[in-house]
Write a protein that binds this DNA or RNA. Structure first.
Lengths: 329, 329
DNA sequence: TAATATTGTGTAACCGTTTACATAAATCTT
DNA sequence: AAGATTTATGTAAACGGTTACACAATATTA
């Protein structure tokens, strides 16, 4: 059904080596021969088998991508950033969701390797990093960082501090800080930075735990007002949890941002559709993905890379769950 | 760096054939030999190269997945359904976003084929279907359907009709029906079904166009109230557009659902977080993905398949952008 | 114990490419 | 016109697995 290089060679009346050479533009080939070969290629609709190529070259046109959970709207943005960038260079993505689970991460790393990927981009836990050791292919960490591996991530510390500053500057004094899972490094970092900032401000601060999911957020939000009814500021670990909190706030008839301020993290798309639209700390997800892809391609092409650790800036997106800042005269 | 079967064979003092046999549990192998081989495998941390396997077998453990846009929250659900199911059987996903563009679809189909995928799952336009002709590997359509190919999709007609019925039964009489891009079959079908139902009801109906994105929805929503200020019901082509409409409604201070009813389509996650929570028609996205994966595996294993066209039911998710139904005594 | 069946193992061909090397043809030097 | 270059092409050996086939060793049977 699918034509092989031998059939093309036969059709064109040349050897397979010649076909290979004209296909790849490598080595010599007479103009006339090129035409004959291309005609045969055309006629048989020949497309070189990537698997055979990959076997010989010991590298494919495949890039492995491991993300925690594509169902969390933060990651699709990143994935598209990666894909859109790689796609232009003919690379394809093998993709896996890890759910932040070590076994899954390892399983995907292994199978990606078995498929001769040229490189990998991964948001994996720090402990999984050792699985990247002694690989002869480049790996770039995304939304994570580490000593040895190049990485593209965002400035969680500034993000966390910023979130805290916002509530502080706008007058919250009884703040609940919702901490996400501590195993997830970036989430932990933003939490720590916010906590530090709040602590320094000598304001009343309570810490609560939540998963990064909607269900987790809802459970947390419900408890929050039972335990700390006079809260006047909430810093959520991500936008999803913030959205859950917002819903609870509304349900209880608390005025926002007058009685309570709320700030999320990520700036995922639907955040602006909430009512009131959610103030949040923006991470440039798409850009992060694209830059990771760019760095990976650089590595693949053995180019020198100026900075192997790219920390992208975050920014405060002011919407309507925080008050206007009072200007000090 | 990475051990090959030859190195394992040498280490174990046997031939490559023997190693292959014990790895695959095919043919005979003496118990003692097995032990020796497995020890060597262990020692060298040998993992068979899938590429070489794939070349010989002419099929890999890779499945191609083409989705329109992973950035639209409807699709990640589906993708996870596919992945979670396939993952158990050791299949991996090569993934591509098509943006509903014919060239991209074809490009991905071609490169997937070049990588010896065992099968493909695709949400592609009808015109791309011919590219699936004469393939020796199974393909299942997802969220789309067609004559020749097996497919898993949802009942768009019932969905469209249901959406219309809901607004009708709850008393809307000046309804705007937002039609999505007509090239996208499922979107068109739900539109047509709704239109039919509305027309029959002899109610006042206006049609507007929108893309499936937030930006498109916002533009559409703005125009909507300028052109049809006394609208009292909106059927959106999907939840994203519905969310945009909801925002416009709120901005204009129109009461919902008292003055206007709104219904979306898909039931993507954040829909319940809107304020008020959005009534919508639910498509079982995850389930659809999982079932497509199941069907594909059946096909790969050459099992008989009872129904090659699985139409999954949709349902009305009643939330707070539609009124309570008035019971007729 | 010889004949036969079963089990265990190795050799080499194959999957579809790329490329080192050999050799032939064309072109350039002097 | 002979020799040196350059260009053009083919042959065969990789790449890392799987498996048909041959053959040897062991177990079973009569």
């Amino acid at each position: 059904m699918v034509a092989t290089i031998r059939e093309v060679a036969k059709e064109a009346g040349v050897s397979v080596a010649t076909v290979s050479r004209v296909m790849n533009g490598s080595g010599y080939a007479h103009e006339d021969t090129k035409k004959v070969v291309m005609a045969a290629v055309e006629k048989l609709n020949y497309k070189p088998n990537e698997v055979a190529r990959s076997l010989y070259n010991r590298k494919s046109k495949l890039v492995g991508l491991i993300l925690p959970d594509i169902t969390n709207p933060f990651f699709p943005e990143m994935a598209r950033g990666v894909e859109d960038y790689l796609q232009q260079f003919g690379y394809r993505l093998i993709f896996g969701n890890s759910d932040e689970k070590r076994e899954k991460e390892i399983e995907y790393i292994d199978t990606f390797l078995q498929n001769n990927v040229v490189g990998m981009i991964a948001s994996t836990s720090e402990e999984a990093n050792e699985n990247f050791d002694n690989l002869e292919i480049p790996v770039v960490l995304l939304d994570r960082t580490g000593e040895k591996l190049p990485a593209v991530y965002s400035d969680q510390k500034t993000g966390g501090r910023l979130a805290a500053r916002v509530l502080l500057d706008r007058g919250s004094t009884n703040i609940v800080l919702i901490r996400g899972p501590v195993e997830i490094k970036p989430v932990y970092e933003r939490y720590m930075a916010a906590l530090e900032e709040l602590t320094q401000a000598k304001v009343n601060v309570q810490v609560m735990d939540s998963s990064l999911t909607l269900q987790g957020g809802q459970i947390c939000a419900r408890q929050l007002f039972e335990q700390y009814p006079n809260t006047d500021g909430i810093i959520a670990c991500n936008d999803i949890v913030a959205a859950a909190a917002l819903q609870e706030i509304l349900k209880r008839g608390i005025r926002i941002p007058e009685d309570i301020q709320l700030i999320g993290y990520d700036d995922i798309a639907f955040t602006q559709l909430l009512h009131p639209p959610l103030s949040t700390i923006r991470q440039p997800a798409y850009e992060m993905g694209a830059q990771a892809a760019e760095m990976l391609i650089r590595k693949i092409n053995q180019e020198k890379i100026a900075e192997t650790h790219k920390k992208l800036p975050v920014s405060f997106v002011e919407r309507q769950t925080t008050r206007r800042k009072v200007e000090k005269p």
